[in-house]
Design a binder for these strands. Sequence first.
DNA 1: TCGATATTCAACCGATTGGTTGACGATCAG
DNA 2: CTGATCGTCAACCAATCGGTTGAATATCGA
Lengths: 108, 108
Amino acid sequence: MSRNLDTVFAALADPTRRAILAMLLEDDMAVTDVAEPFEMSLTAISKHLGILAAAGLIAQEKRGRVKWCKLEPDALKEASVWMQGFGQFEPINLDAFEAFLAQELPAD
Amino acid sequence: MSRNLDTVFAALADPTRRAILAMLLEDDMAVTDVAEPFEMSLTAISKHLGILAAAGLIAQEKRGRVKWCKLEPDALKEASVWMQGFGQFEPINLDAFEAFLAQELPAD
DNA sequence: TCGATATTCAACCGATTGGTTGACGATCAG
DNA sequence: CTGATCGTCAACCAATCGGTTGAATATCGA
């Protein structure tokens, strides 16, 4: 369980992976479509998706030759609970979150 | 700023560093005292503290020959806001947090 | 059946990580 | 001054990470 915190935080530590999560927040996507905005090989994105899946942050379901990726937000809950203990954070600020999303989306 | 999320999440990905944060939650400590419960060299702990400080998660102040470490919970706020966007998490569950702390504290 | 598309596998690469040891510079106590 | 304590520095090590390329597998469309 605390081993899982390792993998969740490590997965979140990479900006490409956070950008992928932000993309999946809007819609489920196939691997190829996830890879499209990045200047990086499909193999690299496939590995990133594998890391996110291993951390439980996304689920991957293969239908035909297409593997669909969808967000699995429950894995973040554990990490979020852990973090909340370190301060009385203000109530969720969705504007700030939107600003982060805008920053995080890969430059085109 | 998004560079900072990299370092914050990377810092949190290591169980030793999370245990250190949990210890500092209870009290400010000197480097040697932080290192005491771990089966690891003082140098290694000093490096971990440097990583936590670089991520802004702790502050270090040298008084005499003793370097005091204290929690700097503001750095977590940014990461926490980012995470909150990925789900409607339940209100802060302090019992669950206490359980995590118990798990995370280094075995004696 | 054949060719295109979707995805992974295997091997490799340089950079980073988490740890060690030994020597070193400060600072405090007597 | 001397010796012990606090902490970092420098060099090294094996393992992991983030990326590449080329080949392989599987499925779809015509």
